[in-house]
Structure formats: structure tokens, C-alpha cells
Design a protein around this nucleic acid. Structure first.
Lengths: 321, 321
DNA sequence: GCGAAAATGACAGACGTCAATCATTTTCTT
DNA sequence: AAGAAAATGATTGACGTCTGTCATTTTCGC
């Protein structure tokens, strides 16, 4: 009928429930041959511990902490919103998500997620014995899972879109970096170079994710090189890019940028930009929580590959983003 | 500390546990004023029934049935695989998924999902009092949730990609239908027309999702109209399209088609086609199961919008699709 | 105000696991 | 072989909910 219980395992192994329990939960004090027999019975019966019963008994509710940078970049606030929504959605599943600011100190919890490569915090959490999942921005080192897009792939995607848009013709695409120091941005740029080749990509300008700088530097670049046929904005600060495109009217380069925000969405709809590559923050958050739950349950988190979404003016998601 | 329990609710409402339980589970035989007080207490305390404990007690494991059409189209087999994988993944959550063939009769279960618009089956399930979720293909009527892409949006996306690829030049795009009778296909075509306009879209040919027909009819069409600059394959049967593109060498139209299968994937990598629009079967299945669980728990399923994925040769998902 | 019906309370045994205690048996030491 | 140590078994009471029974109280019709 139903799945086998630990009682069934104990019976099959010819030991008492207590012994089976000691083996399962590693409480020690069990003879090697008993351990083997219990393990074998678990195998044979295909026993899987019922996590709902286990958690009920432990009266454990998963305590997760999420460290999200400040800033209303639009992107981080989308991440925040996603965490709150998931927190709501999983309330019946004994999952409590503590949304914390990056400035707050580390507190105890079952698993933590950091948004962005905040190495110091990751180290602090790891030192405290808390497993860490990184979201959005990977950071090599002792973390248990990375959830986010592959930025090399994202960059290649942007490059491919420019290629398609320049079909048959030569391309002069200007890449706009937030900062050359950010690994994510470097990866995206590298991806674009892979597809477009160095010949079609101009030297990147860096605008520090700042709309003002974006506007100033981009205006300058477009004046200096009237032959620019494409823009690839790798980081943030696109509020400075959009009005420039509006001013140019019909004659503007093909524009690809990242992250679907209210601004970029409106610009797409207005035909001021062409493509938005989006990380799907809500999905990333949901997957991150799945991974955290798996880690807290002592399982290996399922590897997830998030393919960035590609938005045109025609396939924008509705009111349920 | 933890969440309030039904005991807490009863205490706050000034009634016994029994009465609170009767209200919560609608067992009847409760005075109106007691109902109100319990409801109020639930509100005040923010009580949410602990589903894990409830399910444990009911010794309920969710019994779901999935009706997937036969056929190794590649797409349906991907759906099947996704169901099996999710079945595995959720084994610890007392979720049993019964993958059934469309020819099998309806059996009792907590919620069913049909892939494709199989109205007869939906009616049979509904008549048996089983809530139904439809996957991939919507069918208006008494069903509880639809999980799948918006095919109008998918068609618009295809149209937009052709537009981008034809930037500055006139377009002659040939749409290739599976069948004009399928609502999904009609929607996709309509979407493409919205973006490209009737002027750029040639009259559609219909190939009945059959590779042989595809090959024959498409070859004919390309001969008849050498000015074709784009193909939009709306249905299946692309195994007949791909070799044609190979034969044409460098000079081929811009090709957009649907569903990432081993064939279409290889064709993308070989540069024989340009874009694949994919429904993300694995994600659809996962979302469908979420919805089914919510329905079985008596909650309203969260509305989900699945944005079709757009694949080029550069952003194909790795070994974890 | 009386009897019947309705409403309520009290309680108990599940569900599968955890965690602890204590008694008993087996194995090891020398 | 006796005593110590290790291993095992038996048992119990949670966790929060469901479901049932049964006794008691309240309400209602007349």
C-alpha cells in the first residue's frame, strides 16, 4: 500500500525499531553488522523517511535567512518581493524566511541565501556552520549551491540577438558595463565577444550602474562614433539610456539590455529598446528555497539551470510576473 | 514562538477543540455565532492549518493521475520524463503520480492532469468529481487550472524574431501549420500575423505534423516561391524540415520552430535553423503538480504564466534540461 | 416548563517520526 | 568466569491534525 515505514525497515532487518532509528539518525552505539542489515533493508524496501512526519515530530520549522542588498534598483526590490511572496506561499509548510539586510549581522538559521557575491558574509555564515546558497551572483568557494543564470550564456544570447538583427550587414555594437570588476559583467561581455567577435564589438564603456553616468558617457560615445548600430547594456543604470533613445526617434541602434524592471518594460512597449534579457528573479528565489529546503533536509540540492528569459515587446508577462 | 495551532484558535474563540475542528473542516452542527467566533479567532491569530500534520493524520498521500498522449513525438516523451522525474523528486512528500495512457479508463484520484485538449476525458473526470488541470493545451470549460504557454504570445514572439531578422528589409515568411483545426496552432499563427502583418506572411501550408509531408510540401513551396526569406514551423514534423535546410547550404531562410527536441537541438547547433521556441515541458509539469497539490489541499492554485523559452545555438541548456 | 433536537465538550486512537529512558541481552576484557 | 562495556529491545510521550464516540449542556417548539 503506502510507503514502508521505519517499523517495516526494522522488521525486515530483524532488529528493533530503536536500532533502526539509531542507524537512520546516526545516534551511534550500533554494531557494524546491524548497521549493514538496516542499510540493506532500507535499500531493499526503498524506504524514504517521511519528512513531513519527521519535521512534525521535531517541531522544526525551517528557519531561512535571505540577505538581499539594499537599493531600489528595481531588481533587488523584485527579489525582495519574491521572497515575501514565497514566504507567504510556504507558510503552511513550516518555512519561515527571514529577509535581512546585508548590513545586519549573521544570526543562526538552518540555511542562508546571499544575493550577490558577498564573500565576507558567505565566510561569516560558513564559519558559523550555516550552509549558504548564493543567488544571482556566484562566488567560488565553500557554498552549497548556486542558483542563477549562467552569465556567459546570457552574454552569448545578447550577442546572438545582435547578430540576427544585423543579418547580412556589418555590426558595430557598443557594450556598456556597470563595472569591469564584477565577474557577472565580465562573463556577459565575454559571452557577447564569443558570438560577435572582437571585430563587431567596440571597446566597452563603464558607467558604474549609474543612470547619470550612463546618460553622459553614452551620449558622448554615440556622438564620437555615429556608426554604432547596436548597444548592449550589461549592467544597471538603464534609466539613463532610455531617454537618449527616445530623443533619437526612429534612427537608433538595436538595443539589448538586462533585467525586466518597470522602466525597461515601458521602454520595450514604447519601442525604445528591442530586447530585455531577464534573470527571472521570482523563479530564482523559488528555486533557491527549494535548494535550501533540500539542504536543510540533508539531501543534495537538485542542480538547477535557469535559462535567462528573452523579452520583446510582444511577449511581456502579464500581471503575474 | 511557533505558529498558532488549532488548540490556540479554540482557546481564543472560547470554544472547545472539537468545535473549532468542526468549523474548520465544515462538519456541520455548529451554531452560527460559534462559527463566527472561530472564524474571527482564525483571522486574529493568523492561523494556518499545518498541512503536513493534516496530511500525516489523514495518512493521505496525494494521488494524482496524469494522462499523456502516446507517441514519441519527442515532446510528449519529454513530458512523460518530466512526470517521472517529478514523481521521484516528490516521493518524500507523499505524492504519488500515476502516469496513465489516454486510452486507459478514468480511475479515482485527488486531481488529474490532461495533456492536450482531450475534452472527453476532461468531461469524464469532471463527472467523477475529480478536479482537472489541463497542461499544454487549454480547453475552455469546467477545469480548475490551465498550465501552459500562451500560444498567441508564442506566435507573436516568432513574428518578432522574424521581424528582427528582416530588419530593414521586406519579409516573406512561410508559416507551416500542423493542422488548422488545432486551436494552439491557430493561436500561434494569429500571433505571428499580429506582428508581421498579413503582407509579410504567406498563406500557410499544413503538414499534419508529419515529417514526410513536411518535406514534400515544403520542398514544393520553396521551389514555387524562391523569394521566401523565413520559415515559421508552428507544429511538429520538423524532422522533415531540417534535411531540406542542410541541402540548401548557406542560402536558406531564417527558421523559427517550436519545441526543443534532440532533433531541433542538433539542428540549432549545426546552424541549420535559427530559433527554437520551447514550452519548457519540465517546468510546465512542475507547475502543474504545484497547482494540483494546491487544489487537493483545497486552496486556490496560484496563477502561473509560463513564458516560452527562446533558444539559439548559444543558450541551449546543458545536461540538466 | 417539558421533551426533543441541536450544540458543545471531553477524550482517545491514529498517522510516522523523534528523542529519551530504562531494562535486558550480548560481547569483550583479563 | 566474573565484571565491565557495548549493543539491543521495549516503551513512552510528544508534534498538530483527523475522526470517531459519548456524555453533557444549551436551545427550541409548543
Amino acid at each position: 500500500m503506502g510507503n514502508p515505514t521505519l517499523h517495516d525497515v526494522a522488521r525486515a532487518a530483524g532488529v528493533s525499531y530503536s536500532t533502526a532509528d539509531r542507524v537512520l539518525n546516526g545516534r551511534g552505539g550500533v554494531a557494524e553488522k546491524s548497521i549493514q542489515r538496516v542499510r540493506q533493508a532500507i535499500q531493499d524496501l526503498g524506504y524514504r523517511r517521511d519528512m513531513t512526519a519527521a519535521n512534525l515530530s521535531r517541531r522544526r520549522s525551517y528557519r531561512f535567512a535571505a540577505y538581499v542588498p539594499q537599493g531600489d534598483h528595481g531588481f533587488f526590490s523584485a527579489i525582495r518581493r519574491a521572497f515575501l511572496a514565497e514566504s507567504q506561499r510556504r507558510a503552511g509548510q513550516r518555512i519561515a524566511i527571514n529577509l535581512r539586510d546585508v548590513t545586519e549581522p549573521v544570526t543562526d538559521c538552518d540555511c542562508a541565501v546571499t544575493v550577490g557575491a558577498d564573500q565576507d558574509r558567505i565566510d561569516a555564515l560558513t564559519a558559523a556552520g550555516i550552509p549558504v546558497v548564493t543567488l544571482v551572483s556566484d562566488s567560488p568557494g565553500a557554498r552549497r549551491a548556486y542558483i542563477g543564470i549562467d552569465n556567459l550564456v546570457a552574454g552569448r544570447t545578447a550577442g546572438r540577438l545582435h547578430r540576427i538583427a544585423h543579418r547580412g550587414g556589418p555590426a558595430r555594437v557598443l557594450p556598456i558595463l556597470g563595472s569591469a570588476g564584477l565577474r557577472d559583467h565580465r562573463d556577459r561581455l565575454a559571452g557577447a565577444i564569443e558570438v560577435l567577435g572582437p571585430g563587431s564589438l567596440l571597446p566597452a564603456i563603464a558607467v558604474a550602474d549609474d543612470p547619470g553616468r550612463m546618460r553622459a558617457l553614452l551620449e558622448q560615445a554615440l556622438r564620437d562614433d555615429p556608426g554604432i548600430t547596436g548597444l548592449y547594456s550589461i549592467g544597471a543604470g538603464n534609466r539613463g539610456l532610455i531617454p537618449l533613445m527616445r530623443e533619437r526617434g526612429g534612427d537608433r541602434p538595436f538595443v539589448v539590455l538586462h533585467e525586466l524592471t518597470p522602466h525597461s518594460r515601458a521602454a520595450l512597449q514604447d519601442g525604445l529598446i528591442d530586447v530585455v534579457i531577464d534573470q527571472k528573479p521570482a523563479e530564482e528565489v523559488a528555486r533557491a528555497l527549494d535548494a535550501m529546503k533540500a539542504i536543510a533536509d540533508g539531501e543534495a540540492p537538485a542542480p538547477v539551470a535557469i535559462t535567462p528569459a528573452i523579452f520583446f515587446k510582444d511577449n511581456l508577462p502579464g500581471d503575474t510576473p
